[in-house]
Design a protein around this nucleic acid. Structure first.
Lengths: 121, 121
DNA sequence: CTATCATTTAGACGGCTGTCGAAGCAGTCG
DNA sequence: CGACTGCTTCGACAGCCGTCTAAATGATAG
């Protein structure tokens, strides 16, 4: 968390955080990396499937079956998501289970959220 | 808009919309296109500069000066953002001014926002 | 130990993408 | 009209990315 010392004036539906002050070069580069990780239809669906799966985690075998893609390709996409810190994988016996890391996903949302509603928390 | 007829159970601070139900193939493809448009450091900064500029719009000349890139390259990035429906440009005399289209930007935010707070609207 | 299944890694290949220089279009100034 | 400035389009090129096949690794079963 960077916590820029800018007083957030929630005076109505103004604009997303990205539109409050110009983004620095370094921040932009880092955020772009994060965004690139989700800017792919397959990875978007993988993330969605993992997140919406009962128990909060999904087995790779289930994920692979849902696409017309080979197992290595799915594995590659999962690695991209894992490297970006969006998901975490764990091996239990024969199968590997993936789980979403909500904090990092929320970071993406915070970027473009209009902040129209006051943050009650 | 595909509008899958699934009853969305908002039973508390669960997870982002993307994690409530698996994303359809078509929706994923369309969202990926939108995300690709912002998954670039230069475009992220352009969007941020335009959005945070006084008056809500920025001249291309200002934008070009802020980067170590040639004018055609900046123009290319602006076109990508415009094609994605994120910004809109208008020529006034000698200069061209760009403006953010908040609705489309908000769509991005809604994707990953945790929805921890009840939607008052 | 060997066989088999689940997943990842390695290597290769075609297509997309960011960048540039050159040229074209639009508007202003003399 | 003719020259000049601001921005975009065009064409080309290097590098990245998504996909595959083949092979390696990890774990269980017989």
């Amino acid at each position: 968390m960077v916590a820029t010392a800018v007083p957030v004036v929630t005076d109505g539906p103004c604009c997303a955080p990205i539109a409050r002050e110009p983004l620095g070069e370094a921040d932009a580069a880092e955020l772009a990396t994060l965004l690139k990780a989700v800017a792919d239809p397959v990875r978007l669906r993988l993330l969605s499937m993992i997140g919406s799966h009962a128990g909060g985690e999904a087995c790779v075998c289930d994920l692979t079956d849902a696409f017309d893609l080979t197992a290595p390709t799915i594995s590659h996409h999962l690695k991209v998501l894992r490297t970006a810190g969006l998901i975490d994988g764990e091996r239990r016996g024969t199968w590997v289970y993936y789980r979403i890391i909500p904090k990092q996903v929320a970071r993406l949302g915070a970027l473009f959220t209009p902040l129209a509603e006051p943050v009650s928390a």
